[in-house]
Structure formats: structure tokens, C-alpha cells
Nucleic acid binder design. Structure first.
Length: 277
DNA sequence: ACCCTCACCTGCACGC
DNA sequence: TGCGTGCAGGTGAGGG
């Protein structure tokens, strides 16, 4: 379910919880979770490896190991990690399990089966097909206003769908795309290459703002090791959304009704008055 | 190289 | 109650 801020929180939590731990057994319970690594290979490449650190690239979580391998994991819509005592029964939809030396195990659980994993050589990490086409990290110097203006010019797609393309802009998902457009007062149906320089500069800043705001919020939360899903939702964070999931509610700026439309088969929320064409 | 639709899964909320 | 429909924070493959 997560967008970049939630993945950031999950990666930080995992780094706290499992780095320096040694995987004594790795089990791939659902083969299609890691189609590039048959279960025996998956197990062999992770066995007896110590996790050096956990970080992320875009929405991909990277477990760096001391044996020159890296485990890439993507949560997609419903994946999550759980650090559980071995005596605890595995939850439904557990698709991979990593046993540590202290009677604890890290479980990857995924109700919708969209998540995936892959073990790669760390030396080749940035050239893997999962990572090599990703846009620059949103808080790196490579993602700057000039980059953003230039990449906008390459596409006639509507700006909402454009923002979801991780090879163009990294980190936004369906919620924060609507939120960033609202903050920048940009209509979601405008073609990317029709956005003015002035608006592009504002939108660039708002993309960083929504991501940073959300990461800051997540850093104040206590993560439950038994449910490392990065979810801010259900904890009241929904109240921070200015337009997402607020169809027909009053806009915080103008009190006009927030509208829901469908773009690329997915919901977009916006204020027609604050975000005119 | 681009666009579009479909596909991958399960569960939940809703209307009849 | 049951059943059908639509929807859910993501992306890839395959066709035109």
C-alpha cells in the first residue's frame, strides 16, 4: 500500500530491528514472490548471511548482506514485514520467512500477492531492471527544478498519471500525487508538457513538501515490530489528507466541494475551484 | 518508443 | 442473508 514515505519508515524500522542479525534459515514459501530465484537458490544465497543494513531506493526495500548479495523487496499494495517469535503461528499469506539466531523470525506477509523479492549481487544492484530506470531520489540534488521542468516536457500524459511514473518522478503514489497537485493548485487533467514554468517550479517544491511532511510525521511514530507496515493510516493520519478520499467534502481553501475523477483507472481527488484548468 | 488495457490477488463496503 | 459490483496506498507484460 505504501508510497515512498511509508517505505522509508519501513526501511528505517527494519534497519533498527534486523541489521547485524544473521539469517540462519531463509524460506521462500510462495515461489512466485521471487520468480527469479527458485526456493532452493533463494534459501542458499541468504543462509548464514548477516544483514549489514536496510535502506531503500524508491519504493524498493534493500537488505544489504555481508556475503555480497542484496535482497530487494517491494511491498506493492499490501506487503508488510513482521518480526515475530518463532513460536508464534505464521499469519495467513506469509510468503517468505527469515530465521535469526535468537528464536525470532522476520515474516513477509502479503494478502494481495502483488509484492516481490529478488536476490541480486550487490555489485550489480544499480543495474538491475528493478532499479536502473528509476528517476532520481526526490531529496537528491539530481531531482531539482530544472530536471523536473525538463522531464515534464517529455510527456503529453495528464499530470496526475505522469506523477505516478517512477521513471520520471520517484516516490509519489496515488495519495500524494493528488495531494501535491492540490498544494500546487495544478489541475490533474492538464498535460504534463502544458504546465507553465512557474507552475512546474511550484509543483516541484510541493512534491518534496508532501513527501517530507509525511516522512517527518512517520518518524514520530512508534513502529510495532510485529507489524512493520509503515501505515500511518488508521492512526489518524488520514486527517492530514487535504483532498484524497474526501469526495464531496469542503475544500480547506475555498470550501467548494472536492471532486473525484478516474484517471488511468485510479481515483484522483481535487478541488475544481482551486485547481482550475 | 509510445500509449492503452489487462493482469496479478484478496477482502471489504455498498446496494439490491 | 446473500450476491453482485466496485474499490483498495503498485507496477509489469503484452498488444496496437
Amino acid at each position: 500500500m505504501p508510497e515512498l514515505p511509508e517505505v522509508e519508515l519501513v526501511a528505517r524500522s527494519l534497519d533498527q530491528l534486523v541489521s547485524k542479525r544473521k539469517i540462519i534459515v531463509a524460506e521462500l514459501l510462495r515461489e512466485r514472490l521471487a520468480p527469479a530465484n527458485p526456493p532452493a537458490e533463494f534459501a542458499a544465497r541468504l543462509k548464514d548471511a548477516t544483514i549489514t543494513r536496510v535502506h531503500r531506493r524508491g519504493k524498493h526495500i534493500l537488505f544489504e548482506l555481508d556475503n555480497a548479495e542484496t535482497l530487494i523487496a517491494h511491498l506493492r499494495m499490501s506487503g508488510r514485514f513482521m518480526l515475530l517469535p518463532v513460536e508464534r503461528e505464521l499469519p495467513k499469506y506469509s510468503h517468505a520467512v527469515f530465521y535469526f539466531e535468537d528464536e525470532m523470525r522476520l515474516v513477509f506477509q502479503d494478502q494481495r500477492h502483488f509484492g516481490f523479492m529478488r536476490v541480486v549481487e550487490t555489485a550489480n544492484l544499480s543495474e538491475t531492471k528493478e532499479l536502473k530506470k528509476l528517476a532520481p531520489e526526490p531529496f537528491s540534488d539530481d531531482f531539482n527544478a530544472r530536471y523536473f521542468r525538463d522531464v515534464l516536457k517529455t510527456s503529453k500524459k495528464n499530470i496526475k498519471e505522469f506523477l505516478l511514473d517512477q521513471t520520471k518522478v520517484l516516490g509519489l503514489g496515488n495519495i500524494y500525487a493528488s495531494e501535491a497537485l492540490f498544494l500546487a493548485k495544478v489541475n490533474p487533467q492538464i498535460a504534463a508538457n502544458e504546465i507553465s514554468t512557474r507552475k512546474a517550479n511550484v509543483l516541484f517544491a510541493k512534491i518534496r513538501d508532501v513527501l517530507a511532511e509525511s516522512i517527518a510525521h512517520g518518524s514520530t511514530l512508534n513502529v510495532n515490530p510485529e507489524n512493520i507496515d509503515g501505515s500511518y493510516y488508521g492512526g489518524g493520519y488520514e486527517n492530514h489528507w487535504r483532498v484524497y478520499d474526501r469526495e464531496k467534502e469542503p475544500c480547506g481553501n475555498c470550501a467548494g466541494a472536492i471532486k473525484r475523477i478516474v484517471q488511468g483507472g485510479r481515483s484522483t481527488y481535487f478541488c475544481p475551484r482551486c485547481q482550475p484548468k
